[in-house]
Amino acid sequence: MPTDELITEEDYSRFREAMRVVQAELLSGLDSENDRKRILEIVDFRESFTSESDRGAALMAAAYLDETLSGLLRKKLVDDAKVADKAFVFNGPLGTFSSRIDFCYLLGIIPANARGDLHRIRKIRNGFAHVAGPISFENQDIRSQCDHLNFHGVNAKASPGARFRRSVMGLLGLIIFRSKDAGHLERMEDYTMPDGRGIVEFVAKVFEEKTGKEYPLRDHFD
């Protein structure tokens, strides 16, 4: 197939129409309405994401992955929304993208290479966010982070922006897959302290034999 011909907007239009047909066929095969909504949400994200500027893509991707990780964690943690809400506020233990990445890994719901890529995407986001002037994926520091991403599935010829965008979609697919299988950890029953009066009686007896005085803490256990 020739590769040196100019690809026109009409070519892209035909391609997009063909993909919409494929998408409709795939969605019709899903039994769950929630699954269909989730897939459509991802499709909408991808369309917006791919049309963004480099800076916009980095900020959008990190925010969406962060939100998706939060959803995964909420599905895995004990089902107590009131306590979970406190954990996910900004100054809570799960209030940052970084903490959510690491906690998902420590719970065993994402692998080490996903943890590494998510942290790289977080650093790429920060790289864009902390520069006021023009900046792109060709920036040396950002390109270096993109070169170490793993979830893109492309070779070294791909641009850093392509590696980034493909890695984001790969990670998103993994997180959504893990979310579907995730179940809440069981809530532990309240712990009942064992009756310690026998031990207290023994201690009191020794105390009273050795001192000739009443054990001072006896009334704490009567």
Score class of each variant (00 low, 15 high):
D102P: 00
G56A: 03
Y105V: 00
K210E: 10
F128P: 13
F45N: 00
F88S: 06
F15C: 07
F15S: 08
D11L: 11
G196D: 04
V22E: 07
M193Y: 14
V21I: 13
F90V: 07
F221P: 04
G173W: 02
T50R: 15
E17S: 07
R165S: 01
D219E: 12
I175E: 10
A158Y: 09
A114R: 00
F90C: 00
I142C: 07
S48F: 13
G116D: 15
M60C: 00
E209H: 04
L107G: 03
S159E: 08
R163V: 01
F221C: 13
H148E: 14
E47H: 11
L77T: 05
D147N: 14
E67W: 10
N139M: 04
D195Q: 03
R122T: 06
S144Y: 05
F103V: 14
Q145T: 00
T68K: 09
R36S: 01
R163N: 01
G198E: 07
E186I: 05
A162T: 14
D147S: 15
F90A: 13
S51L: 11
R165T: 06
E138N: 10
A61W: 07
D85N: 13
L107W: 09
C104N: 08
G108M: 09
L107N: 03
D11G: 05
M19R: 14
R143D: 04
G153Q: 09
S32K: 01
M169R: 03
L65P: 14
Y191I: 06
K75A: 07
K86P: 01
I42R: 15
V83M: 14
A81T: 00
V89W: 09
S70P: 01
Y191T: 06
S167V: 05
K157A: 14
L30D: 01
N139C: 06
E138A: 07
N91I: 03
I175R: 14
L172C: 04
F128S: 02
D222P: 06
M1F: 06
F177L: 07
A112C: 05
A112F: 14
D102N: 11
S32W: 01
S53D: 08
E214Y: 10
Y105E: 11
G161I: 01
T96W: 04
L59F: 04
D190W: 10
I135Y: 03
F207K: 04
H152I: 00
L106A: 09
H152W: 12
S70A: 14
M169G: 01
A156F: 08
D141N: 06
G127I: 03
I39T: 03
S28T: 02
A156M: 07
R14K: 11
L26M: 10
K82S: 11
R74I: 02
D181V: 04
L30T: 01
P194N: 09
A87F: 15
T96I: 02
L69C: 04
L69E: 05
A81E: 09
D54P: 13
N139P: 12
S13T: 11
N113T: 08
P134S: 08
E9T: 07
I39S: 05
D102K: 11
S179I: 02
T3F: 13
G196C: 06
G183Y: 11
K213V: 01
F15P: 00
I121G: 11
G133I: 00
K37V: 00
D85I: 01
C146Q: 04
E138S: 13
S179E: 14
I7K: 11
N113Y: 11
R74G: 00
R36W: 02
A182C: 09
H184A: 09
E25V: 08
N126I: 02
A132I: 12
